[in-house]
């Protein structure tokens, strides 16, 4: 039961953390210069976004939940969590970030999900 809770935390907190970071970065607008000072300004702007901190907080929560799980003996949960994170990302992109996920992208996401599961399991 406790393990299931931490697995859920790793999956949900990890994916939502990345979505929040994505939201923060989208709001900054497309980077067109890759000079160090321009990149530094983008990082500073990102760190001023509440979404960025919410995202980093969720990712930290996922990371520590993962550490708790890894301290236990059974690590078989890693496979479904890692693989499903791609499907959750597509869902989050569609419903939280308003992206258009077309049939090809869905198919690609499902293949990646199955492929990652096989690579882990093999």
């Amino acid at each position: 039961m406790q393990t299931a809770l931490f697995v859920l935390l790793v999956a949900v907190a990890g994916t939502s953390g990345e979505m929040f970071v994505s939201r923060a970065m989208k709001s900054i607008g497309e980077v067109t210069s890759f000079r160090p000072e321009a990149i530094a300004r983008v990082v500073v702007r990102a760190l001023a976004s509440a979404w960025m901190w919410a995202g980093l907080g969720m990712m930290a929560l996922a990371f520590f939940s993962l550490l708790v799980l890894l301290s236990g003996a059974n690590v078989s949960f890693v496979v479904p969590v890692t693989a499903l994170s791609y499907v959750m990302a597509a869902l989050g992109g569609r419903f939280f970030l308003g992206e258009h996920v077309n049939a090809n992208r869905w198919l690609g996401v499902c293949l990646v999900c199955a492929g990652v599961a096989l690579v882990w399991a093999g």
Partner: peptide, 20 residues
Amino acid sequence: LSYMLVLTWADFSYVLPASA
């Protein structure tokens, strides 16, 4: 840093599976 930069213009649902 690369992840943050690419997300300023590209879809999250594009970047994550592609980076797999």
